[in-house]
């Protein structure tokens, strides 16, 4: 009995220490990316642009289509409820505030983790499996500076841009439902929105959120790929972990950031 209890406790302790250990490795990995980013700035910019095509431009379709539908659904649902209280005109406020404050950054980050994060993890994991990263080191090319840092900066720059586009397209989707379909006056739709949405409190905070999510999602995707066991199974598990960990990180960070922003 006593032996079994100690065995279980030891198992828990072992896993806990492993988690902390991994977190520490990830933090050092993050630090190495930042330090290596100053190596060759011109090359980094060129490579970052190249990577932004993969992470940003190719994510556009899914982001924009989701945004349109999220906005339209918000418009329909908001109208349905608000109309009972005789304030259907406020549907624009509802759509804009929920998109700019929460849904824009969060849904973009979740889609980004699924669309771009997995691609990054699989790519880096496969590079490691086929020993391309070691080969680079052999040729005195630092893989962190050459492969990891451009992907990191591409993700960090792309995320706020994608989130801004998500919010804007979502608002347009809400407009499409509210004004031509449900017959709300276009003037009151926009003017009520403008009186309620504050640039500093709502829009800037949304951008800050999406920036933080961009750092979190990209670093998780890169680290999982870099840390993946060099086997087919290892890469597949790392890809799954990217999606799970990024989503949890985004939702947890969102709560933390919102509670800070609301209290200020």
């Amino acid at each position: 009995m006593l032996k079994r209890t100690t065995e279980t406790l030891r198992g828990i302790g072992h896993r806990f220490i492993n988690r902390i250990w991994r977190l520490g490795t990830a933090a050092r990995f993050f630090w190495r990316i930042l330090r290596r980013s100053t190596d060759k700035p011109m090359r980094l910019i060129k490579l970052t642009v190249h990577e932004m095509y993969a992470t940003g431009v190719l994510s556009l379709v899914i982001i924009l289509v989701s945004a349109l539908f999220v906005g339209m659904v918000l418009g329909l649902q908001g109208y349905n409820t608000l109309q009972r209280y005789g304030s259907a005109d406020a549907v624009g406020v509802l759509v804009a505030l929920s998109l700019v404050r929460e849904l824009g950054p969060v849904v973009t980050a979740l889609l980004f983790a699924g669309r771009a994060g997995t691609a990054i993890t699989a790519e880096i994991g496969l590079m490691k499996t086929t020993e391309q990263l070691s080969a680079m080191e052999m040729m005195a090319v630092n893989p962190i500076a050459r492969v990891i840092a451009p992907r990191f900066w591409a993700g960090v720059i792309s995320m706020p841009l994608l989130a801004a586009m998500f919010s804007m397209v979502g608002v347009l989707g809400g407009y499409l439902v509210a004004v031509p379909l449900l017959g709300i006056d276009a003037g009151s739709f926009w003017s009520q929105m403008q009186t309620s949405v504050d640039f500093r409190v709502d829009i800037v905070n949304g951008v800050i959120k999406s920036f933080v999510f961009g750092v979190a999602c990209t670093i998780i995707a890169l680290f999982e790929g870099y840390d993946a066991p060099p086997t087919a199974e290892g890469v597949s598990r790392a890809t799954t972990r990217t999606v799970v960990n990024s989503s949890l990180a985004v939702l947890g960070l969102d709560f933390a950031l919102t509670s800070f922003m609301i209290s200020v």
């Binding site: 940003g56 700019v100 841009l161 804007m168 608002v171 403008q194 009186t195 640039f199």
Partner: peptide
């Protein structure tokens, strides 16, 4: 590729300005 990335960045900035001007109360 450069063109696409340029368009992407421009669209993102336009969306941000659009949010500030049309949705927000900056104006």
């Amino acid at each position: 590729m450069d063109l696409w990335v340029g368009l992407f960045v421009a669209a993102g900035i336009v969306a941000l300005i659009g949010l500030a001007m049309k949705v927000g109360n900056l104006t």
